[in-house]
Each structure stands twice: as structure tokens, then as C-alpha cells.
Amino acid sequence: MMSEGSRSRLLHHLLRGLLLAGFAMLILHLVRSGDLGLYIAPRMAGYVKLSALGLYAAAVYQLYAALQLWLGRRGAGSAYDCGCGHDHAPSASLWKNALLYGLFVFPLALGFLLPDTIMGSTLAAKKGVSFAGAHNVERAAQPAATPQPTAAPEVPEQDIAAPQDPLDAKFPADVYTETYAAHAKKLYLQEQAIAVPEQQFIETLTTLDLYRQHFVGKTVVVSGFVYREPAMPKDWLAVSRFAMNCCSADSLPYGIMLRADEAGSYDADSWIEVSGRLGLDEYGGNEIMILEATRIAPIAAPESPYVYPDYEFGFEP
């Protein structure tokens, strides 16, 4: 006959085993469905997958201990009085236990029952979209560009294959913005339109913004979700992406403004690919880049909707 104490211990082992297995299966489920990337950056995904293994091992142990107790083996619970000093004995209060296990069930229920969605406008509004690339890079050794009241794109005067020296003068850099200046020269000299790639999304936007007056009139191609703020004019929208470092909690939205007559016809959070000529305008008291749309195409949300900081930026040959 099982005593009251060991019956409650059995229940605890069983519940803990199931919860641990539940978390392991949640990770497996996210890996299988390919949705793990919605929560965790790729460089962290490996560790999370490994932790599923650890959770499984612990679950197996708990279920094994429950089985031993159920079979009435005396030694089964003995790991509990090993003298290592934690409060192994679970609390006796029913509602405390309910609260404790409820706390663990809650994320599992959310994970399995709610569909996985991608971060969009709602969170972007809370987190605050940056329209100027990374804030932390400041212009080097150059007075701020004089704001241009009209957004009319001006073609830079020395557009024809500038020799080395004028190019350096155009893209001044200190030791910290060197990589951006190098990137800017590459983009400036290239014949075709400037694509803002997923791989270097933030880096490219930052480069364009740092030397924005020299890129005015260039064609830029970018894709992202549609984001709007109440303060934006009717014919504006922002093409945005979330940039993630480790997990969604530390991700931040980056975007570039777009002006188009039909801007209002694109719903927030729908995905578009646009090309447009780069101009300058003012928003919230700051000079910002804005694309004058030449082409807008609705696209499907990409497999990996987020972008990541490129740790190789500036180190590639």
C-alpha cells in the first residue's frame, strides 16, 4: 500500500516529468515547423536544440523515479534525502503547487495552442523604428548635411567616375567608420541599383544614411513589411525589418521611408519589395532618407523574416 507521502511524491515526479518532456517537445515542434527562427537567432538555435536533449534526459529521470515509486521500490525516492541541502520536499499546499505548475504550463499552452506569428507593426510601434540605420555610428569629420527643404532628388555634380581623391573626400571616415566608408564607395561606384540585402540590412542602411547626400538620386531596392506611424503623411509608408541579436526580446525594427501615391493601399504588415530613387526629407525634426517609389510589388513574407547583424561586416575581402 502506498503511503500518502509517496503518492504525492509520485504525482510530483509525474508532473515534472511531463512538463520537462513538454518543453523538450515544444522545442522539437518549433524546430520541425521551422518556426524556431521566429524566437531565436540562428547563432543561438544550436544551443536551444541541445537544451531539448537535456530536458528530455531530465524528463526521463523524473518519469523513471515516478515509475519506481509506483512499483513500490523503496530506494526510488532516496535521491531526495541526499543531504545536499535543497528543499527537495515539495510544498504541501495545494494552491501553491497549482500556481507553481500552472506557471510552467502557461508557456507550454501558449506555445502549442497559439499559432506562431512573426513580429510586425504592433511590436515595431512599441519598440520604435529606426529610420537612420544604427544610431551608434556618427558622422565622421564632416559637418551635418544641410537639410534640403524639398525632397527633389539632386544628382551629385561629380557623378562621372570620380578619381580616388575626390572619392575619399566624399566619404570621409575616422577609424570607426572606415568599414562604412569602404562600403559606401563600393555602393557609390556600382552601376546597378543598390540592393539592401538581408545579409547586411542594417549595415547597408547605416552606410546609406551616413553618406546620404551622395546617394541622393540613386536607385535603392529593398523589401520588408509595411509599417506606419500616425505622424506620417498619407502617401508615406516605411519598409521595415526586425533585426535580431539573440532572441525576439532584444530585436529592434529598422526601416526606410517610402513615398508613393498609392502608399495607402498597402496594409500594415503586408510584405512588399520596392525600388525607388533616394531623396531626403524631414521627419520628427530629423533629416531622413526617403525613397520615391518607382516600383512596388507585393511579396510573400520570406522564410526568415528577420535580419541579423553581420559580424563579418568589414572583415570580408
Binding site: Y39, V48, S248, A249
Partner: peptide, 27 residues
């Protein structure tokens, strides 16, 4: 609903990100 989805994304990502470290810690 969107607020709930946002909450879920942040909540789960914090937990999932911490799992490997907390497991390593207890191990």
C-alpha cells in the same frame, strides 16, 4: 489578438533563450 501574439513571441523567446544557460548552470 495582436498584443497577445506579441506577448507570446517575447515571452517564449526569453524562456527559450534562457533554457540552454539555465540547464548548463544546474548541470
Amino acid at each position: 489578438e495582436t498584443a497577445l501574439h506579441s506577448f507570446k513571441i517575447i515571452f517564449l523567446s526569453l524562456i527559450l533563450e534562457a533554457f540552454p544557460f539555465i540547464l548548463l548552470g544546474v548541470l
